[in-house]
Amino acid sequence: MKSIVPVIIVVFMGFCFLFVGFTNPSTPAGHEGYVKENPRVWGKGGFRGALKGPANYGVSFWRNEVENVDFRPQTYAETFHILAKDELNISFRFQTIIKVKPGSIQGVVEDYAGAEFYPRYIKEPLRAMVRRHVQTLESRQVKEKRADIAKSVMTELEQYLADTPFIVVSGAVGNIDYPKVVTQAVEKKLAAKQLLDEKETQREIAKRDAEIRIEEAKGIAEAQRIINSTLTVNYLQHEAINAQLKMADSPNHTTVYIPSGENGIPIIKNVEK
């Protein structure tokens, strides 16, 4: 019985060794996998094949492993605090979308650090490009030319990555923040402009009112001129006779008519001041 126990232990350990010794490298959807042999005890190791997810390499004994890299377009955001040409410190984010060329997993892992390709080979060159294109502009120009900045940086980045497995999809300058003193100055300027616009509106209203009064005065003066030109002596005598006729026909009072001119016609005389 005692001789059987060591045999059982050895068999059990053998099964455990076989169980933990098998591997089944797999790659999820959207990724490509770099399958490599880990020599550990024997063998030369190295690249064994590529997987395009979702996929499994198959059960293998002990030594095969997989390094997966996401091949879908990824957004990389960088925050900047840059001193512009006019010595104002501006803050903004620059967002870049980059993807990996399909079928290039071996080169990505062996030449560009695999999944760490962005921080190892792209991040700092990209940041240097953004700084270079922003520092030549004044702070107010950065916001006005944000599209031009992004276009210039993308052109330079595409040239930098021309012979690599990486594709630049797009880039954009995010929200730009100015120092507090600049923001306050802009707010004061806008408030002053609003007040100036209000005063200008009031001036225009007053001007229009004055023009209306002038036109009214012109109308009154013209009416007086016309009336004065038609008030002749004969016209006034005619009007006086008509008034006398109306009073004679009135039943409410008695009118005494005293002739004062020739043939009883009222005398109309201009009175000199």
Rank of each mutant, 00 (worst) to 15 (best):
M1R: 07
V5S: 00
V11S: 04
F12I: 12
G14T: 10
F15P: 00
F15L: 03
C16Q: 04
F17C: 06
F17Y: 13
T23G: 09
T23F: 01
S26K: 05
S26C: 02
S26P: 11
T27L: 05
A29P: 13
G30Q: 11
Y34M: 00
V35D: 06
K36T: 14
K36V: 11
R40P: 01
K44H: 07
G45L: 11
K52E: 12
K52Y: 05
Y57V: 10
G58E: 03
V59P: 08
F61V: 01
R63A: 05
N68H: 04
D70A: 06
P73N: 03
A77P: 10
A84N: 06
A84R: 01
K85W: 06
I90F: 11
R93N: 08
V100F: 06
V100D: 02
K101M: 06
P102V: 00
P102D: 08
G103K: 15
Q106K: 14
G107E: 15
G107V: 15
A113Y: 00
G114N: 02
E116L: 07
F117N: 13
Y121S: 13
I122L: 03
E124K: 15
P125K: 03
V134K: 01
T136R: 06
K145D: 07
A147Q: 14
I149Q: 03
S152R: 15
E156A: 13
L161K: 01
G171A: 08
G174H: 11
P179Q: 00
V182F: 07
A185E: 11
V186S: 12
K188G: 04
K189F: 13
K189T: 14
A192D: 15
K193Q: 14
Q194A: 15
L195Y: 14
E198C: 01
T201N: 13
E204A: 11
A206T: 07
A206C: 02
A206M: 10
R213D: 15
I214D: 13
E216M: 10
E216L: 11
I220R: 12
I220V: 14
I220D: 09
I220G: 08
I220H: 04
A221E: 07
E222H: 11
I226A: 03
I226W: 05
N228Q: 10
S229M: 04
V233Y: 12
Y235C: 00
E239K: 13
A240H: 10
I241N: 08
K246S: 12
K246N: 12
M247E: 13
N252W: 08
H253K: 08
H253W: 00
H253E: 02
T254E: 03
V256K: 05
S260A: 05
G261L: 00
G264N: 07
V271K: 12
K273Q: 06
